[in-house]
Simulated assay, not measured.
Amino acid sequence: MLDIRDLHVHYDGIHALKGVSLHVEEKRIVTLLGANGAGKSTTVRAISGIVPASSGEILFQGMPVNKKPAHLIQRQGLVHVPEGRKVFANLTVRENLMMGAYNNRDKAEVNQVMDMVLTKFPILKERTAQLGGTLSGGEQQKLTVGRAMMSKPRLLIMDEPSLGLAPMVVAEVFRIIEEIRSEGVTVFLIEQNANAALKIADYAYLLETGRIVLEGTGEKLLNNPKIKQAYLGESLETAFQD
Rank of each mutant, 00 (worst) to 15 (best):
Q140S: 10
I50K: 06
K40H: 02
G184Q: 01
A38M: 05
V79D: 04
A204K: 07
V173S: 08
F88I: 08
M99C: 13
A108E: 14
P153Y: 00
L7Q: 02
Q140P: 12
P153G: 03
G34Q: 05
F188Q: 01
Y11I: 08
G19E: 05
M114W: 10
P64I: 06
L189R: 03
E95H: 13
S21C: 00
E126Y: 03
Y203H: 12
H15D: 14
V187G: 02
Y102I: 08
G100E: 06
L236W: 04
S162T: 14
T217D: 10
H80Y: 09
A129T: 15
D242M: 15
P167E: 11
L72G: 10
Q112F: 10
Y231G: 03
L17Y: 06
A230F: 08
Y11H: 08
A196L: 10
L165M: 01
L207D: 00
V117W: 06
I50F: 14
V113L: 09
M150E: 08
Y102L: 11
T42I: 10
V169N: 04
G164E: 11
I177H: 02
L124N: 03
A101L: 02
Y203R: 04
G84N: 08
L165G: 05
I50Q: 09
Q241E: 13
S235Y: 07
I58F: 00
G233Y: 12
H15Y: 11
R94C: 09
S136P: 04
G218Q: 04
N104Q: 14
L131F: 14
G37K: 09
T209S: 07
L214M: 13
P153F: 07
S151Y: 02
L131W: 06
Q74P: 09
K86I: 10
F60C: 00
T238H: 15
G184H: 02
N193F: 01
P161N: 07
L2M: 02
G218R: 02
L189C: 02
V79A: 00
L198M: 08
A129Y: 15
L17S: 07
P64A: 13
N195K: 11
F121I: 08
R85P: 10
V51F: 14
V51T: 15
G210Y: 00
Y231L: 06
K228Y: 10
V24L: 01
G34S: 07
E179S: 12
Q61F: 15
L206A: 08
E183W: 01
L118T: 15
I47A: 00
G132L: 07
N224A: 04
L33P: 01
R28Q: 15
K142I: 09
Q61I: 05
K86Q: 13
F240Q: 07
S136T: 15
V87P: 01
N193T: 03
G184P: 02
A89Q: 13
I200S: 02
P122I: 13
Q229H: 12
L198C: 03
P82Q: 11
D3I: 05
N224S: 03
E109H: 15
L118A: 13
L155V: 02
R175F: 13
E179P: 10
N223K: 11
E237R: 08
G137V: 11
L232I: 14
V169W: 09
L221N: 09
S182D: 12
D12N: 12
G84A: 12
S151W: 03
V87C: 08
E95L: 05
I58H: 01
K199C: 04
V87A: 02
L33E: 00
T144F: 06
E139L: 11
P82S: 05
L131T: 01
